[in-house]
Amino acid sequence: MSGPQPAFPLARVSRRAEWIILAVALVSVLLLPRYYPVMNQMAIIALFAVSLDLILGYAGIVSLGHAAFFGLGVYTAALFAKHVHGDPFLGLVIAAIAAALLGLATAVLILRGTDLTRLMVTLGVALILLELANKLDWLTGGADGLQGVVMAPVLGLFTFDMAGRTAYLYSLTILLLMLFLARRLVASPFGMSLQAIRDNRLRAEAIGIPVNARLAAIYTISAGVAGIAGGLLAQTTSFASLDALDFQRSADILLVLVIGGTGYLFGGVIGAVIFTAMHHWLSAVTPQYWQFWIGLMLVVIVLAGRERLVRAILSPFTWLLGLARGRSGPAK
């Protein structure tokens, strides 16, 4: 990930990009009611991708099993709503805590060893969870999935409607909130120290950065955010199923992030929009061989060079972001 190229042009996108996303989202709410469910998926996948970007783009941790935290969020939120309380926000908090705890517990395993052991461990943790969810069918419904998740109205005011309007607005609000928080996080001394670790771990240690503690912290935070994304999925679809924990899910989210670009958070959002739209369209054309197209995309993107492709995809957007630039950048 090094080389004498100039800094990624969008790496320092202004905070105003949030307002652009907000504007686009609001327009979508007004103009595209038909697509609420699809856009809801986009928002959820975007949040999941943002959580992965926190560890992959900012801390350099490659994970083959980020679905573990997403899936745990799905089941936690579903079970919480079913057996304890139907309040959506409370459910999200519980889902985030559960996933973050798993992240904290497994962080120990990813701190040590090499890229290879990290691949194995992340994949292994997700497989263990999948196996657990499958075996504990009295709790999770096993392969049939968990049905009958009924949510209380958001804030006691907005009931989840059939058209999916409340669901979309709810997911969108959470996404924007988390994006804002993540933007603060990555610019903070903590976030900057992660980027230092990503670029050169040896030097990071040598200037007094406690590398392991920082990596464990971001892994935990990232897991929590993934848990929230999973929670949103369970709450807005009233359903939890094993595919939330599947390897396919982990691979999909890698692709999402790669489409949009890593290391600047908005890549996850842009990737999610493109990915979900493509999924929607390709599934309609060839429902069975979605996996083939995913594979092809991954291969082509890597061969073409990830950064180049991202630039190409984003070029129509750059004028928008160019408009929004300005207040970013450190004090002169």
């Binding site: 790669v258 594979g295 995309m297 291969v299």
Partner: peptide
Amino acid sequence: FDQVLFSIGLAFMAVA
């Protein structure tokens, strides 16, 4: 990371 993405892609294509 690039190698991982690439080879997962190949594996998916093989499976399909």
